Computed example of a mutant assay.
Amino acid sequence: MTFHIEPLTWYEAAQRCKQDYPYSHLVSVTSMDKQNYIIKKIESRPDLTQTSAFGYWTGGNDEASEGRWMWTGNGNPVPLNYTDWHVGQPNNVGGDQDCLLIQYYDDHFKWGDVSCTETHPFICEANYSQSRQSR
């Protein structure tokens, strides 16, 4: 898992993950354990803690169908089986909030939905099983 503090749009962040490593994608937070791991990592580094006020992009979005949130990073959309939404989220303000952000640092990094064209830091993870299959 790599943390990037450079703010990019969701689309740019997804592309940057692939540039860094071909089998890398925006992180899918599929369990409380993984969410807690991310939080501990953020809290262990001052640069990440400072940047967390702006939120971190994940691979979650509902662009294909409003309200149907999917992890899309690995190429095969997978429904969210674990969520950690902030109270009142997702709320699709303005009808244009389709991307999932680890957002509320003051509420233990609960999630929010925001416009995919906003710029935020992001988290990538590698799909090692896909990497092994291609060898």
Rank of each mutant, 00 (worst) to 15 (best):
G73N: 08
V78F: 13
I38L: 15
C99R: 06
T83R: 04
D84K: 06
I38A: 03
M70R: 09
A53S: 14
G59I: 08
T49E: 04
V78C: 10
W69E: 02
D96L: 07
T83G: 06
N91H: 11
V93Y: 06
V93W: 06
N74Q: 07
G94N: 09
N81E: 15
Q103H: 14
F54N: 14
R68D: 06
W85K: 12
G94V: 08
L48C: 05
T49C: 04
Q97G: 00
P77D: 12
D84R: 08
G73T: 04
Y105M: 11
T83K: 03
Q97K: 10
G94A: 05
D62T: 09
D98F: 03
E66Q: 14
N36T: 14
N36K: 11
Q97L: 03
W57P: 04
T58N: 08
Q103F: 03
M70S: 07
I38R: 12
E66D: 03
G59Q: 09
Y37H: 06
W69T: 03
E43S: 05
I38K: 09
Q35W: 10
P79I: 13
I42S: 01
Y37P: 00
W71L: 04
G73P: 07
G75A: 11
W85S: 03
N92A: 05
G95P: 08
T83A: 09
T51N: 04
P79G: 12
L100Q: 15
N92R: 08
L101P: 06
N61S: 13
Q35E: 01
T83M: 10
Y82I: 14
G67A: 10
V87F: 07
G75Q: 07
R68E: 10
Y82F: 15
K34P: 00
L48A: 01
H86L: 10
K41L: 02
W57G: 01
G60Q: 07
D98R: 14
S65T: 15
S65C: 05
G67H: 09
Q89G: 00
G73C: 07
